[in-house]
Simulated assay, not measured.
Amino acid sequence: MPKNKGKGGKNRKKGKNEADDEKRELIFKEDGQEYAQVSRMLGNGRCEALCIDGTKRLCHIRGKMHKKVWIAAGDIILVGLRDYQDDKADVILKYSRLMESYRRIRG
Rank of each mutant, 00 (worst) to 15 (best):
E34I: 08
Y35C: 01
Y35W: 04
A36R: 03
Q37S: 12
V38R: 04
S39P: 02
S39I: 15
S39F: 04
R40I: 10
M41F: 00
M41E: 08
L42A: 03
L42R: 14
L42N: 11
L42K: 14
N44V: 00
G45I: 09
G45C: 08
R46F: 13
C47Y: 00
C47N: 04
E48A: 03
E48I: 04
E48N: 05
A49S: 10
A49P: 05
A49T: 06
A49D: 02
L50G: 02
L50E: 11
C51V: 08
C51P: 08
C51M: 13
C51F: 13
I52Q: 13
I52T: 07
I52M: 13
D53A: 04
G54L: 12
G54R: 11
G54I: 11
T55S: 11
R57P: 03
R57Y: 03
R57G: 03
R57C: 07
L58N: 09
H60K: 14
H60V: 08
H60T: 13
I61W: 01
I61V: 15
R62A: 00
R62S: 00
R62D: 00
G63M: 05
G63V: 03
K64V: 07
M65K: 13
M65A: 07
M65T: 04
H66Y: 09
H66W: 07
H66G: 01
H66L: 12
H66P: 01
K67G: 00
K67E: 03
K68G: 00
K68T: 05
K68I: 00
K68L: 01
V69D: 04
W70R: 04
W70P: 00
I71N: 02
A72M: 06
A72T: 13
A72I: 08
A73G: 12
A73W: 06
G74C: 05
I76D: 05
I76R: 12
I76C: 08
I76H: 08
I77K: 01
V79Q: 03
G80I: 01
G80F: 02
G80T: 07
G80D: 14
G80Q: 12
L81T: 07
R82G: 00
R82K: 11
R82Q: 10
R82F: 08
R82W: 14
D83G: 12
D83K: 10
Q85T: 10
Q85F: 09
Q85I: 11
Q85L: 12
D86H: 14
D86C: 06
D87K: 15
K88V: 03
K88G: 04
K88S: 12
K88E: 15
K88R: 15
A89L: 08
A89D: 06
A89I: 10
D90G: 00
D90E: 10
D90A: 02
V91M: 10
I92L: 15
L93Y: 15
L93T: 06
K94R: 15
K94I: 01
K94T: 01
K94H: 08
Y95V: 11
S96K: 01
S96R: 05
S96F: 00
S96Y: 02
S96M: 07
R97V: 02
R97W: 01
L98N: 12
M99I: 01
E100T: 03
E100A: 05
E100D: 03
E100S: 07
S101V: 14
Y102L: 14
Y102F: 05
R103D: 06
R103P: 03
R103L: 15
R104Q: 11
R104L: 13
R104M: 13
I105F: 08
